[in-house]
Design a protein around this nucleic acid. Structure first.
Length: 661
RNA sequence: GCCGGCUUAGCUCAGUUGGUAGAGCACCUGAUUUGUAAUCAGGGGGCCAGGGGUUCGAAUCCUCUAGCCGGCACCA
């Protein structure tokens, strides 16, 4: 007999060969029905997996939501694959995991990739499989058995994969009923009927490379969202709809902040209102860097190709650079003619080499270090077209870029200072961020010792700043670093949960070497400085995109392009409205006046839709009394204030967070 | 760059089996002087993304190009 101990401390004796499902049945039929999987000695397994000895058992039911969701989503993926093969014979299956909100499965289609129009039929087929309540049964197979089965079924991707699974791994397959199987580590629900047929939805199709490699075949991926019940699914779909309303591309147009057009795709046309936000950010950042010992510079937009050759960009980054001939072209009817041996120039894709050139002017002493050079640096990168995304990924962008030239022994201190500065900035905007450490990539410059040291420095600095915790989503990303340095990365999240890197700091020993930067140390000798690349907004474009989504367009007063509108009720109040406007302007408030012959209801609605933070309504009464009726966006109530009081309030509310008392 | 989809008025979108383009909002004009989320009436506005085909005839079908959207890959 086996001794199976349960979470409540009790122990049950079960015959050899029993399974967690048997224990559930022995406890009661209700539990047997509700049980989805089991934790045996901590490991999540199928209900039908026999115990191998005495064990600690915890049954998993839908109350264990995280685990139940994970299981359900994995099962949805299998059911999707079975449905697709049943409707589209000859389709090969490859791989289909669960995701944060559902699942996907990658297929190698027989004739054509799937389209959105295929999804309803596939959903219907999936519901049939769920209704059939097919048992999901685990078997352990040998590698040879697996490979020959896949080959015989024409599943070349599965066969390739099976052949490469680690030698020591137990290889399992899962049957769905008796007629369909997939290779899978499991665990799974006991049967397809445990899924709620109304709690999933196939959402989209997409291409995806086999094994995530561009050189491989393009597969056809089907995404779905999957939940434990319909209520959860509906709540999720509602969340998505709400998120779509916060999309910065939509709000940017509605609020007249900026536009994009084909003639300059990937570059932003900032309209007056959008550029006001930009200017406020710029002023904010200047105050921050001035207070932190940085000095602002401005460097050339175009530099000679030889300079980029020396920095290494010409070799490593040229396909992303905009290159132009350094020659006045001959122009005829056919257009400009450039001779083949023109010298080449390139628009800067980053600011670092130019900052090194500034550093190299004159002789630097160890007393000059750390030297912090800041630039609102406008960069151009010829990004792959498919990567462009509103303000988040553009081809022309302005970084809040700085480079700190310092000695080895100053790195940890500088990184820590930067962590604090970045933390303050993100908090000023109300953001919570996550922080990652991207470690050495396969293709890299420098010795292993250099990388050990550089990674340790960043790790230590983060630990000293107390940021290496779950609260900050701390994780290390092997292989994701830059070719010259490991990267600390700060990430923010957009409306629909995609994360975007904004801030970064990287310790670089390669570029100072390549561009021969040096300083004179105490010993009178030339030494190489280390160069820390760092940014907090990342780019103004991306940061504004995230700000818009974060606030759903309702910018805090200090960033709002129009902070207040004075709206009249009757034309008798026009003169007074102009007086209010003038006084607000004199007090530094960005204000507009609406004297149109329209009902006040109409004006309130229009300016509310435009997300103006404050509406100052003036009618006959206010004009006589020298007051305003102030209404705040999102509230229905109005405050009747004297004009002076209203101005005091607005001025106080419009202060940038770093200027508040 | 790759896979799928989309592109009709300033905006949001209709447009039947191919038969010469429509609504709401916005805009302009007039009336209305109104107290907190849309006052009424009239008017102007489109090379149906661009090129090339098929057809007596194309917004509609085919094809190429561009951009956009969702992913993938990329992202110093």
């Amino acid at each position: 007999m086996l001794k199976i101990s349960l979470p409540d401390g009790s122990v049950r004796e079960m015959p050899a060969g029993s399974t967690p499902g048997d224990v559930a049945a022995a406890i009661g039929p209700g539990l047997a029905k509700a049980a989805l999987a089991a934790r045996v000695d901590g490991e999540l397994v199928d209900l039908t997996r026999p115990f191998t000895g005495d064990a600690a058992l915890a049954l998993v039911t839908s109350r264990d939501e995280a685990e139940a969701l994970e299981l359900a989503r994995h099962d949805y993926a299998h059911v999707l694959a079975e449905a697709v093969q049943s409707l589209f014979p000859g389709t090969q299956i490859t791989f289909g995991p669960s995701t944060d909100d559902g699942f996907y499965y990658d297929f190698a289609p027989k004739d054509r990739p799937f389209t959105d129009e295929d999804l309803p039929a596939i959903e219907a087929e999936m519901r049939k499989i769920i209704a059939a309540d097919k048992p999901l049964r685990r078997e352990v197979w040998s590698r040879e058995q697996l490979i020959s089965r896949w080959k015989q079924q024409g599943e070349s991707f599965k066969a390739e994969w099976a052949a490469e699974l680690p030698e020591n791994e137990e290889l399992s397959v899962y049957w769905s009923g008796d007629d369909w199987l997939d290779m899978c580590r499991g665990p799974h629900l006991p049967s397809t009927g445990k899924l709620d047929p109304a709690a999933f939805k196939l959402t989209r199709v997409s291409g995806a490379y086999w094994r995530g490699d561009q050189k491989n075949a393009m597969l056809s991926r089907i995404y779905g969202t999957g939940w434990l019940n319909k209520k959860q699914l509906d709540a999720h779909l509602t969340r998505l709809e709400e998120a779509a309303k916060r999309d910065h591309r939509k709000l940017g147009q509605e609020m007249d902040l900026f536009h994009l057009q084909a003639e300059a795709h990937g570059s932003v046309f900032w309209h007056p209102k959008g550029y006001l936000i930009w200017r406020e950010l710029e002023a904010y950042m200047r105050r921050a860097i001035d207070d932190s010992g940085y000095r602002e510079v401005k460097t050339p937009q175009v530099m000679d190709a030889r300079q980029w050759e020396q920095s290494g960009h010409w070799g490593k980054y040229r396909e992303n650079m905009f290159v132009i001939p350094d020659e006045v072209p001959n122009v005829d009817d056919e257009g400009p003619i450039i001779s083949g041996d023109a010298d080449w120039m390139a628009l800067k894709p980053m600011n670092c080499p130019a900052h090194v050139l500034i550093f190299k002017q004159g002789i630097k002493s160890y007393r000059d270090l750390p030297l912090r050079i800041y630039e609102n640096g406008c960069c151009h990168r010829n990004e792959p077209h498919g990567a462009l995304h509103g303000l988040m990924r553009v081809r022309q962008f302005t970084q809040d870029d700085a480079h700190i030239f310092c000695r080895e022994d100053q790195i940890v201190d500088e990184v820590q200072k930067f962590c604090k500065l970045a933390d303050r900035v993100y908090k000023d905007f109300g953001f919570t961020y996550s922080i990652k450490l991207a470690l050495r990539p396969e293709q890299r410059f420098g010795s292993d010792e250099m990388w050990d040291q550089a990674e340790t420095e960043l790790r230590n600095a983060v630990a000293a700043a107390g940021l290496n915790t779950e609260e900050f989503g701390w994780e290390e990303l092997p292989g994701e670093g830059a070719f010259y340095a490991p990267k600390l990365e700060w990430h923010l999240t957009d409306a629909i949960g995609r994360t975007w890197q904004v801030g970064t700091i990287q310790s670089d020993r390669v570029l100072p070497e390549r561009l021969d930067a040096s300083y004179i140390a105490e010993d009178g000798e030339r030494h190489r400085p280390v160069m820390l690349h760092r940014a907090i907004f990342g780019s103004y474009e991306r940061f504004i995109g995230i700000l818009i989504e974060h606030f759903a367009g309702r910018m805090p007063l200090w960033l709002a392009p129009v902070q207040a509108v004075v709206a009249t009720i009757v034309s008798d109040a026009d003169d007074y409205a102009r007086e209010v406007e003038a006084k607000l302007k004199a007090a530094g408030i960005r204000v507009e006046t609406d004297l149109r012959n329209e009902k006040i209801n109409y004006k309130v609605r229009e300016h509310s839709v435009a997300k103006v933070p404050h509406l100052l309504v003036v009618g006959k009464r206010e004009a006589e009394e020298g007051t305003v009726a102030m209404r705040t966006l999102g509230e229905q109530q109005q405050d009747f204030l004297s004009l002076d009081e209203a101005i005091t309030r607005l001025v106080a509310g419009a202060k940038a967070p770093d200027l508040r008392d």
